[in-house]
Write a protein that binds this DNA or RNA. Structure first.
Length: 292
DNA sequence: CGGGCGGCCTGGAGGC
DNA sequence: TGCCTCCAGGCCGCCC
């Protein structure tokens, strides 16, 4: 098995990927065949202070001796299923990375949690900013897990669509940008894809969710699915060297139409992409084709 | 109780 | 060159 690293790419300072839903799905698809069937023989916690404190003793007690059955995803959480009704719940946060590699490979700074596998391999959780999390629970308790219980539908699943968005937005005063990023309504839509989807749908990010009619709800839902599906098909590439293509609409190396392109030309009209701050986060949109 | 916002955290960028 | 400040953002929890 060759060295495989998934998650945050560090191959160059100008190339990076933030783990939004497509990245997490790509990690899942890569990880599953690498891990399936492998038994955990040890767990090392080098830094327990992640988003929530890692309980090393509990991790060891639950997971040692168990074998990986499969890897699934719920929202941006990876669920690694083990024998013995055990599930490892991993969130990559902003900068998290999961690697499967041979145990002789030198540890890196920020390799916080190591799962030693039989056969001389290790699953390593690496996360410089420590916004990620590693938790263990029983598979049967997953639906009621405090991190998962309140989550809305999967954007690519059967419960999400224009009708759903219309129904749940009727009395929501939030701007639509905040609304689609709210995991209670729909999961997996981060800042980047929210900007991209609203641009694609031609909807102004400041519009109150309750003011969207059925048609625009349908357009927003379709755009979210299109943007996420496209990114998964490209292997979870969110941002690749986008800084070098700022102001170069439709430029090489990125599929982002508005994100990070403030001051640049709109790919669709003669307008200029604008950056505003909503709920403390950057929003990029075209005032020309995303009319209020 | 909906929703705005602070805080967590590091590294890279930009200013001086 | 080094130091200092700002910024990035998912998500929880506090608070109005």
């Amino acid at each position: 098995m060759s060295r495989v690293v998934m998650g945050l790419s560090r191959s160059s300072s100008r190339e990076f990927e933030m783990p939004e839903l497509p990245e997490v799905e790509t990690v899942r698809r890569t990880l599953e065949p690498q891990l399936k069937g492998y038994k955990v023989v040890g767990v090392s916690v080098h830094e327990p202070r992640l988003r929530w404190r890692v309980d090393g003793a509990r991790l060891r007690r639950c997971i040692i001796g168990q074998s990986v059955l499969g890897v699934t995803r719920r929202a941006k959480y990876l669920q690694i299923f083990f024998s013995g009704d055990v599930c490892l719940l991993v969130h990559l946060g902003m900068t998290g990375r999961l690697s499967v590699l041979r145990s002789e490979v030198t540890l890196e700074k920020h390799d916080h949690v190591i799962f030693h596998l039989e056969g001389g391999f290790e699953l390593r959780f690496h996360d410089p900013r420590r916004f990620g999390s590693v938790d263990v629970c029983s598979i049967s308790d997953l639906p009621s897990h405090p991190r998962l219980a309140h989550l809305g539908p999967e954007p690519l699943g059967p419960d999400f669509g224009g009708d759903y968005l219309y129904t749940v937005s009727r009395r929501v005063r939030q701007p639509v940008k905040a609304f689609v990023m709210d995991a209670k309504r729909v999961v997996g839509v981060g800042n980047i894809y929210a900007c991209e989807a609203l641009f694609m749908a031609g909807v102004n990010p400041k519009t109150r969710a309750s003011r969207l009619g059925k048609v625009r709800c349908e357009r927003v839902a379709d755009a979210i699915r299109t943007v996420l599906t496209g990114a998964i098909e490209r292997g979870g590439t969110t941002i690749r060297d986008f800084e070098s293509t700022v102001g170069t609409p439709g430029g090489y190396g990125t599929n982002l139409l508005v994100y990070g392109r403030d001051g640049g030309g709109c790919p669709r009209c003669e307008g200029v992409i604008k950056r505003i701050v909503q709920v403390g986060r950057s929003t990029f949109y075209c005032p020309g084709c995303q009319r209020a």
